[in-house]
Design a protein around this nucleic acid. Structure first.
Length: 530
RNA sequence: GAGGCUGUAGCUCAGUCGGUAGAGCAACGGACUUUUAAUCCGUAGGUCUUGGGUUCGAGCCCCAACAGCCUCACCA
């Protein structure tokens, strides 16, 4: 049985509050009773949710042996019970495990509510039903402790579904006091720093993150069904390419080599296209050394998909399917509410060209560089010596993006700001690219991929005037060019920001609500929980 | 990086005009064999984020630091 020795004294922290001291005292008493406060394997228990589904097995049996089915939920159970001939309730034997979330005594009775990830259920512990040892154990239970229970599932006089305990099993002691049993955790900082408490005590927190899992699973399923294979590229790069972002810098000791954390998945997936992996994707973390905001976290999850012999239109169809399938997988409807906004994901999504939207929202001819420059200057942008298309792009971001309620595919971008994209055959000034916007947020980005190695090399060499190298996607990668020289099939490529998709589908205002452990500043005093 | 808001008991929050700290829950002791945010009686719990300043006196006013949130910038 219990191998527990004398419990270790409270480590370092001398600031043990009354609550912690009380819990440690109970820990000591448990040990003294020969009960392991840290539990162990507990087999054959059912989820609370599954147990709640067994209510139909409860029946009332009269002394004459007549079995009566219980009334529907909502009827006055106490009155119904009083009206029955003499007898008693019978129900199935069940075994459950969970965390104590509520506790109330009524003389020689103890009501405990335990919760697991499938639901919550009440347990009734009676002094005469669990015996002296069980009762002694029951006196040592605190909110937040993990327990197991064997008992019979029945209803109390008031009709509450309840496990009438026959035996309690102590599974783990909670040494810290839990948050308010009714209000939970409101402090946003505490919820992020102590996500475990948030998951346990904030309504909807677990559901939100489990929904994230469903979305990711759905994406993998959809891609798998369409013949895409998942791969894992390197996260340590010698050149941080594939996107315009500042990388994190790190260092390999043995090779004495400067390395960057990846900012995109693109360039390695394209190497795999050259290698004959015709439909390939990676769903993984990228790292960008940029500011933090409700829509940005320094590490975030990105999906990139590449399909040989496809183009950006292929990717538009795929994007729609991925999103629609994810919505179905989470049991939602096409109409989604986000931030008081209604978004309608009914396919097909709207498609509008960049220039069209530019003209509509800026009110200026998208080809009139001088007029655009004037607008940019009015906004306050520095225009001197900068590439016209870069200026146009700045104006687009300032004037148009916020208004793209969407979902809307913005298509046909100016070629010069898209160094990894194939030009339109009919108009070399246009890149075959789309971005998907929803609620002013960029959700997806896709290209017909550039596979001409000479042109790619040239674009890497040509920094657009007015752009710093670190701000540009065009970072020379000789190995990547060499790969292209071996023949990359014409292809469509797609990137989707998974966190933002999850935000939209979970109604989350902040990206930190859908990332389990968002980046936070270090706590000042380690060991101090505040 | 700039600006704004916030920081009070373990948790959720009050705190008036600047006069030395309050509630609910949680904890501890007690009553109660059908409660359900149980109830009732009693007890304990505070470096008011930190450091300066003004003042006879600061949770409150001023300055700075730290942390979180929001807006902006960078970016997706």
């Amino acid at each position: 049985m219990s191998m527990t020795e004398t419990p270790a004294p409270a480590p370092e922290s001398d600031d043990a509050s009354l609550h912690v001291a009380a819990r440690r005292e109970k820990l000591r008493k448990l040990t003294a009773l020969g009960i392991d406060p840290w539990g162990g394997r507990f087999d054959d228990h059912q989820g609370v949710g599954a147990i709640r589904h067994r209510t139909g097995e409860i029946f009332y049996q009269t002394e004459t042996g007549e079995q009566i089915i219980l009334p529907d939920e909502g009827t006055d159970f106490r009155a119904w019970l009083a009206a029955q001939p003499k007898g008693e309730l019978h129900g199935p034997r069940v075994r459950a495990a969970g965390r104590i979330v509520l506790r109330r005594t009524a003389g020689k009775l103890l009501f405990i509510d335990i919760r697991d990830w499938s639901g919550q259920v009440q347990i009734l512990v009676g002094m005469n039903q669990v015996g002296p040892e069980g009762w002694e154990l029951a006196q040592l239970l605190d909110l937040g402790d993990l327990i197991g229970v064997d008992g019979v599932l029945r209803r109390t006089k008031t009709g509450e579904l309840t496990i009438f305990a026959e035996r309690l099993h102590f599974l783990t002691k909670m040494l810290e006091p839990p948050p308010d049993k009714h209000h939970g955790l409101h402090d946003v900082e505490l919820r992020q720093r102590m996500r475990y408490l948030d998951l346990l005590y904030t309504d909807g927190a677990q559901e939100r993150f489990l929904k994230r899992t469903k979305i990711v699973q759905s994406i993998r399923r959809t891609l798998g069904e369409q013949g895409y294979v998942e791969v894992e590229g390197p996260t340590l790069h010698t050149i941080a390419g594939g996107a315009a972002a500042r990388p994190f810098l790190t260092h390999h000791n043995a090779l004495d080599m400067k390395l960057f954390m990846r900012i995109a998945l693109e360039l390695h997936l394209k190497r795999l296209l050259v290698g004959g992996i015709e439909r390939v994707y990676e769903l993984g973390r990228v790292y960008r050394n940029e500011g933090i905001s409700p829509r940005h976290n320094p590490e975030f999850t990105m999906l990139e998909v590449y399909q040989a012999y496809g183009n950006y239109e292929t990717m538009m169809e795929l994007t729609e399917k991925l999103i629609v399938d994810a919505i179905h997988a989470t049991g939602d409807h096409y109409q989604v509410t986000w931030h008081d906004q209604q978004v309608d994901f009914t396919p097909p999504f709207q498609r509008r060209s960049y220039d069209e939207l530019f003209a509509e929202h800026v009110g200026v001819d998208p080809h009139d560089h001088d007029a655009i420059r004037k607008v940019a200057a009015e906004i306050g942008f520095d225009t001197a010596g900068r590439d016209p298309d870069v200026i146009k792009s700045d104006v687009f971001e300032e004037k148009v993006e916020d208004k793209l309620h969407g979902p809307i595919f913005v298509i046909d971008y100016p070629a010069s700001i898209c160094p990894l994209t194939k030009r339109s055959k009919s108009n070399p000034q246009i890149a075959e690219r789309f971005e998907l916007y929803v609620c002013g947020m960029e959700l997806a980005n896709a290209y017909t991929e550039l596979n001409d190695p000479d042109m790619q090399e040239q674009l890497f060499r040509t920094q657009l005037t007015g752009q710093k190298e670190e701000d540009s996607m065009a970072k020379m990668d000789h190995d990547f060019i060499r790969a292209l020289r071996h023949g990359m099939p014409p292809a469509g490529g797609l990137g989707i920001g998974i966190d933002r998709l999850v935000m939209l589908l979970t109604g989350s205002a902040s990206i930190r609500d859908v990332i389990l452990f968002p980046l936070l500043r270090e706590e000042k005093e380690a060991g101090n929980d505040k």
